[in-house]
Simulated assay, not measured.
Amino acid sequence: MFKHIRTYKWVLIIILFIISITIIRLSWIGFLTKLDYPQTPSIKQGVLDLRGWKYSHHQTLSLNGEWEFYPSTFLSSKDQINMKQEDYLIVPDNWKKGFEEDLHYQYGTYRLRILIDNKDVDTF
Rank of each mutant, 00 (worst) to 15 (best):
K3A: 12
I5V: 10
T7Y: 10
T7H: 07
T7P: 01
Y8R: 06
Y8I: 04
W10Q: 04
L16T: 12
L16I: 14
F17G: 12
F17V: 11
I18L: 11
I18M: 07
I19F: 07
S20H: 00
I21K: 07
I21E: 01
T22K: 08
I23P: 00
I23N: 01
R25H: 08
W28K: 13
W28R: 05
G30K: 12
G30Y: 11
G30L: 07
T33I: 14
L35Y: 05
L35R: 14
D36F: 04
Y37K: 02
P38A: 05
Q39V: 13
T40G: 05
T40P: 00
I43D: 01
I43Y: 03
K44G: 00
K44P: 00
Q45I: 04
Q45V: 02
G46N: 03
G46L: 06
V47Y: 06
V47M: 07
V47G: 05
L48H: 02
R51S: 07
W53T: 08
Y55R: 08
Y55W: 14
S56F: 13
S56H: 11
Q59W: 00
T60I: 03
T60P: 01
S62E: 09
L63Y: 08
N64E: 14
N64S: 15
G65T: 02
E66Y: 07
E66N: 13
E66G: 03
W67E: 03
E68N: 03
E68G: 02
E68T: 04
F69W: 06
S72E: 14
S72L: 15
T73L: 13
L75G: 01
L75E: 03
L75M: 09
L75A: 11
S76L: 10
S77N: 12
S77G: 09
K78Q: 10
Q80A: 13
I81R: 15
K84P: 01
E86F: 03
E86N: 08
D87R: 11
Y88G: 00
I90W: 10
I90R: 02
P92I: 03
P92S: 07
D93N: 10
D93H: 11
D93G: 14
N94P: 00
K96R: 14
K96S: 15
K97H: 12
K97W: 06
F99T: 06
E100Q: 08
E100I: 14
E101G: 00
L103Q: 08
H104C: 00
Q106K: 14
Q106Y: 05
G108N: 10
G108R: 12
Y110F: 15
Y110P: 01
R111T: 05
R111N: 06
L112I: 05
R113A: 13
I114H: 08
L115I: 09
L115Q: 09
I116S: 07
I116T: 04
D117K: 04
N118K: 11
K119H: 12
K119E: 15
D120Y: 10
V121F: 10
V121L: 14
D122C: 01
T123V: 03
T123F: 03
